[in-house]
């Protein structure tokens, strides 16, 4: 794996949590998702890929996630992604309509309650330990325009 991204995995019951920190692009996305597909144990029913700390994601990575989703579905394993509101990769996720194929949540499930995962409200509070890297509200009055929210691409 390149220096671009770091992968941490944690299993809670039948849920496999995979956290990707860094950047995913043509150089590492396919390799990374293939490795994930092989690494997920059969006993796992849910695979959650947490992209909260992922700062870049290109179309090659999107394609890789589609492949991973297909592969897991064949093994009756659900794939879900976590992309917080305000994430730098949010635009790519939405533009590629990835969420129509792979459910995308704004926060990771509580480790203690993996089965309640699907019931999470869509606008759930993001993981407080991992604030969105882009703090566009940090200095709302910095330029006096008050357009911080206006940057959001709907």
């Amino acid at each position: 794996m390149s220096d671009l991204a770091r992968v941490d995995t944690r299993r809670t019951g039948t849920t496999q949590l995979v956290r990707i920190t860094g950047e995913l692009d043509l150089s590492n996305a396919r390799e990374l998702t293939d490795a994930l597909g092989h690494a997920v144990p059969t006993g796992v029913t849910h695979v959650v890929v947490d992209l909260s700390a992922t700062t870049y994601l290109d179309s090659a990575a999107i394609a890789a996630f589609f492949r991973l989703s297909q592969r897991l579905r064949d093994r009756r394993q659900d794939l879900r992604l976590v992309v917080p509101d305000g994430s730098p990769i949010r635009a790519v996720i939405e533009l590629t309509r990835l969420s129509q194929v792979i459910p995308v949540d704004e926060s990771a499930p509580e480790p203690s309650d993996p089965m309640a995962y699907a019931a999470l409200p869509h606008d759930g509070v993001p993981d407080s330990t991992e604030p969105p890297p882009v703090a566009d509200a940090a200095e709302p009055d910095a330029d006096g325009t008050g357009t911080a929210d206006g940057h959001r691409n709907g």
Binding site: Y56, L57, P88, I89, A91, V92, H151
Partner: peptide, 10 residues
């Protein structure tokens, strides 16, 4: 702006 930087980068 950071927001536009991210989109341009993509």
């Amino acid at each position: 702006s950071d927001h536009d930087v991210n989109e341009v980068l993509v």
